[in-house]
Measured scan of single mutants.
Amino acid sequence: TRRLSELRVIDLRAELKKRNLDTGGNKSVLMERLKKAVKEEGQD
């Protein structure tokens, strides 16, 4: 898996959309949101 920081905004939005998460905001907001989601998934 590529590091989140290497993803483009369009990629971040696609990942968030797959998880039914909000896709609004700038790159840093999107990255934080996705990071949190990935962390929570890992705790399942």
Rank of each mutant, 00 (worst) to 15 (best):
R2Y: 06
R2K: 14
R2Q: 13
R3A: 11
R3C: 04
L4D: 13
L4P: 05
L4C: 01
L4E: 09
L4T: 07
L4Y: 13
S5P: 05
S5K: 10
E6D: 14
E6Q: 12
E6G: 12
L7H: 04
L7S: 12
R8W: 01
R8E: 14
R8V: 05
R8P: 14
R8L: 04
R8S: 15
V9E: 15
I10F: 04
I10E: 15
I10D: 15
D11C: 03
D11W: 04
D11G: 02
D11L: 00
L12K: 01
L12F: 04
R13G: 02
A14R: 06
A14Q: 07
L16D: 09
L16N: 02
K17P: 04
K17S: 13
K17Q: 12
K18V: 10
K18M: 06
K18C: 04
K18Q: 12
K18E: 10
R19H: 01
R19E: 05
R19K: 06
N20C: 02
N20S: 12
N20M: 06
L21M: 09
L21T: 05
L21G: 02
L21R: 03
L21F: 03
D22K: 06
D22F: 07
T23L: 11
T23N: 00
T23M: 02
G24W: 09
G24T: 13
G24V: 14
G24F: 04
G24E: 12
G25V: 01
G25M: 00
G25N: 00
N26I: 09
N26F: 01
N26C: 08
N26T: 13
S28A: 13
S28I: 14
V29R: 07
L30V: 06
L30P: 07
L30D: 07
L30Y: 00
L30Q: 06
M31P: 01
M31H: 06
M31D: 01
M31A: 04
M31R: 08
E32V: 02
E32H: 07
R33S: 07
R33K: 05
L34D: 14
L34F: 05
L34A: 07
K35G: 14
K35W: 06
K36E: 14
A37K: 01
A37V: 11
A37I: 03
A37E: 07
A37R: 05
V38N: 05
V38L: 14
V38C: 07
K39Y: 07
E40R: 12
E40S: 14
E40N: 07
E40H: 10
E40F: 05
E41R: 05
E41V: 07
E41Q: 09
E41L: 04
G42V: 11
G42D: 09
G42Y: 00
G42F: 04
Q43P: 09
Q43L: 12
Q43R: 12
Q43N: 01
Q43G: 15
D44A: 15
D44I: 09
